[in-house]
Simulated assay, not measured.
Amino acid sequence: MASTTSTPEATRAAPAEPAPKSRGSRRRGPYPYWFLIIPGVIYVVFFVVPTLTSFYFSFTRWDLFTSRWIGLDNYRTFFQEQALVIGLRNTLIYAVLTSGLKVVLGMALAIALTSRIIARGYLRSVIFFPVLVSAIGVGLTFTVLMNPEKGLINNALGHVGVDGPGWLTNPSLALISVALVDVWKGVGLATVIYIAGLVSIAGEYNEAAQVDGASRWQLFRTITLPLVRPATASVITLSLIGGLRSFDLIYAMTKGGPGFASDVIASVIYKQYQAGFYGLSTAGSVVLFLLVTLIVVPLTRWLNRAED
């Protein structure tokens, strides 16, 4: 007689299969989309609308109450100004000089401040402190320090038998002097970015290279430098944007002088606005916007591509 007793495996109920998800269903994020409404409105009101308005008014001759369409006349006049040619050249020199020094000094200081040295935390605070100080305050302070007759810097040089130059009165030195002050003020941010990049490098890479007999220079060139490339890209981008748009420090220290020696595009725009040429200064603002975009956007894409 055949046994009618079923095995436990046969009598065990089969687990229910989960219902398949419909193709049209999408997993929602942790926040509702309406959270984007307020930031979107703020972005449109405070960035998109002023930008489009600036483009429009750059083609007009306007004051606070009226405007008249004049086409490209503002741009023609702006590019015929000798001050613009000098300002454009000075802007590029200033941006490249400050960016390069911040990259080199920021990397060197970050390496020093991540090594085993005394008072490392205190020194990090000292390096970063100038970033927190107002650019106008820094400019006025260094204007006094760089005074060719009564300044502390030239007085200190005089005690060792060196005649200090006119840091801000010599046309050949004015722009470079302001750039060095800019580097002193901004190198702390570059250092912090590089410190974050250095501490994220796993120690196993250096240990393995040291076992293979790599020197310090080889460690830096083959491990440290490639792995802090994202930090380098950030420092270059931020420094270059700041250098191209720099105005407050230059105007506080030299007001673009002597003559046009330290004028940059931003200071030329400000002087045109002071003179009452509002349409001309608006066209200059558009030129500055386009200059920053045409330089920074391709450079950022190239840096990110090299990083990948």
Rank of each mutant, 00 (worst) to 15 (best):
A2S: 14
S3C: 04
S3Q: 09
S6H: 15
A13V: 15
P18F: 01
R23C: 13
G29H: 09
P30M: 08
F35S: 05
L36C: 12
V44D: 13
V45E: 02
V49K: 06
L52M: 09
F55M: 06
F57K: 01
F59T: 02
R61D: 11
R68N: 13
T77E: 13
A83N: 13
I86N: 14
G87Q: 05
G87F: 08
R89G: 15
A95I: 06
V103A: 02
V103D: 01
V104N: 04
A108Q: 03
A112V: 09
A119P: 14
G121K: 09
T143A: 14
K150G: 15
L152W: 09
N154I: 03
N154E: 00
N170K: 06
N170L: 04
G188L: 01
G188A: 08
I195L: 08
L198Y: 04
I201A: 10
I201E: 04
G213H: 05
W217C: 05
W217H: 06
R221D: 00
V235D: 01
T237D: 00
L238C: 02
G242A: 01
K255M: 15
G256I: 11
G259M: 05
F260G: 13
S262V: 07
V264T: 12
Y278G: 11
S281E: 02
S285Q: 05
S285K: 01
P298C: 03
P298K: 02
L299N: 11
E307F: 10
